[in-house]
Nucleic acid binder design. Structure first.
Length: 475
RNA sequence: GCCGGGGUGGCCGAGUGGCUAGGCGGCGGGCUGCAGACCCGCUGACAUGGGUUCAAAUCCCGUCCCCGGCUCCA
């Protein structure tokens, strides 16, 4: 079963073939650690995480590198505002970044290189670019000459002439061409800097990614990804730098995710609709947030609003409800009911899930396959109160693999008999026994009041033909 | 100005030529003392005007509208 991905380079779906068989090397552009990450960042990271998990599921050995940008204009400005050193600022927010992605169940990158820890490599790369004639030095700045790199603009589709006519307000007079970009910036008053052959200064925006990607993943990597805003100029420039240096294809597949909007608008601090992952997690569980983020295809926009999150929550609950029903079925040694039909439907749905993911990671379609499993479980549970043990386990394991292993959405059903919950269990069971007696005597008023009061306390009470069931409401 | 993406039922959201996803909601039915959960059925769509075709949401042309990139941004 072949995997197909949409490659921004060429703008079409292609069969995915890694450079080395059985191994995939991924570089995903990470955060600039000058503030908490927001839900737009979260989308990009979740998308990358799902892709990584799916490739691992398919049996590839994945090496996943995601950088941390800890030196740039924003970092400098923020550190001055907060009265912190660049290093302090970077530590605070990179710690926060790791906490946030962990809260969202995003797997940690294998390597998280920081720009400031690769200054010697960056300087060396720039030195070579000058030596090869792709870059030039002016007053302590170093610029990349885009006219020297054939194919500049091939990723974004921008034409050189168009770029030069762009609505740039001020063209830096030091540049030979308006589209040239900085590899090294000379130190300004009060700014941090490193010693270099061109004097004190700091790296430009794009060189860190090319340098670190090649250091850890080799001259040609398999997948390079990020938000679509990075296509130009960031990734275009990365290509120019890396390929000028090596003469080899920098990345074989370029994957870019669409925007996340808030109430239909782009997120920005000035609009006041800037939502950090931390704030979002105060309102919604990580599971619901993740479910929401992948409920649209990664190349389609997705809107963060109450209704969409409400639906994500409802949908997620529908899935966990069915798993709870499955687990509450009594086990038996033999197949006596619809076990074969259930297993067949589940396996077919699993196949549809994989086909959907194989087609450029079509998560909405994959989720539809999950709902097919949900329906199969519910239908089975409507007709049977017991299930053969191995079928039960297999169905549960499949759901767990698809939901948790691949989509990264935890569905672990809380164990009612765990630890101190034991006492709560006994008490609830006792109350329900008393209520059962009231229902037997048709004292509906009292029985309903007990149910309402328990619900107010966060218990969900359901009367079924098999008796009364209860569980804790999950948030 | 240049380049790109898109307009699908009340809402979200798949689908790139025939087999008309899925979810949420609404309506009806079942199960229920009621509620909930769940099952079954119904509802309902391809922005618009042409064209190609035996057949178009899907291809071609025109029109209208929305969004993005060309500047920091996931």
């Amino acid at each position: 079963m072949g995997l197909r991905v949409f490659n921004t380079m060429g703008m079409r779906k292609e069969e995915f073939v890694p450079l080395r068989e059985g191994e995939v090397r991924i570089y995903a552009c990470g955060p600039t650690v000058y503030d908490f990450i927001h839900i737009g960042n979260a989308r990009a990271f979740v998308v990358a995480d799902v892709i990584r998990r799916y490739l691992e599921y398919k049996g590839f050995r994945v090496i996943f590198v995601s950088n941390i940008t800890d030196i740039d204009d924003k970092m400098i400005r923020r550190s001055q505002e907060m009265g912190l050193s660049l290093q302090q600022l970077g530590e605070i927010y990179s710690d926060a970044y790791f906490e946030d992605i962990s809260a969202l169940n995003i797997k940690k990158p294998n390597i998280s290189p920081r720009a400031t820890q690769h200054i010697p490599e960056i300087i060396e790369a720039i030195r070579k670019l000058i030596e090869k004639g792709y870059a030039y030095q002016v007053d302590g700045d170093v610029y990349f000459d885009v006219t020297k790199f054939e194919g500049y603009g091939k990723l974004s589709g921008n034409k050189m002439e168009a770029l030069e006519m762009g609505a740039r307000i001020e063209v830096n007079p030091k540049k030979r061409n308006p589209a040239d970009f900085a590899l090294w910036k000379a130190q300004k008053e009060g700014e941090p800097g490193w010693h270099s052959p061109w004097g004190w200064g700091r790296p430009g925006w794009h060189i860190e990614c090319s340098t670190m990607a090649m250091k850890y993943l080799g001259e040609t990597i398999d997948i390079h990804m990020g938000g679509k805003d990075l296509i130009f100029p960031h990734h275009e420039n990365e290509i120019a730098q890396a390929e000028a240096l090596t003469g080899k294809t920098f990345a074989r597949y370029w994957l870019h995710n669409e925007w996340l909007t808030v109430e239909g608008e782009k997120m920005s601090k000035s609009l006041g609709n800037f939502i950090t992952v931390r704030d979002a997690l105060k309102m919604y569980s990580p599971q619901v947030l993740r479910f929401f983020l992948i409920s649209a295809h990664y190349r389609s926009p997705v809107d963060f609003n109450k209704e969409n999150l409400r639906v994500a929550k409802t949908n997620f609950e529908r899935i966990t409800n069915s798993l709870e029903r499955l687990l509450s079925l009594k086990e038996r040694a033999e197949k006596k009911g619809d076990e074969d039909a259930l297993l067949l439907e589940v396996k077919e749905a699993k196949k549809r899930f994989e086909e959907a993911m194989d087609d450029d990671f079509n998560t909405p379609l994959a989720i539809a396959a999950i709902f097919d499993i949900v329906k199969a479980i519910n239908t089975y549970a409507d007709r049977n109160s017991e299930i053969e043990s191995s079928v039960k386990n297999e169905v549960y394991e499949i759901m767990k693999t698809l939901m948790e292993g691949i989509l990264g959405i935890r569905v672990e059903v809380e164990r009612k008999d765990a630890g101190q919950a034991l006492l709560v269990n006994s008490l609830v069971e006792l109350i329900l026994e008393i209520r059962h007696e009231m229902r037997r005597r048709k004292d509906w008023k009292m029985a309903d009041e007990i149910r309402e009061r328990l619900q107010a306390l966060g218990f969900i009470i359901e009367d079924t033909p098999q008796g009364t069931k209860w569980r804790l409401r999950r948030e």
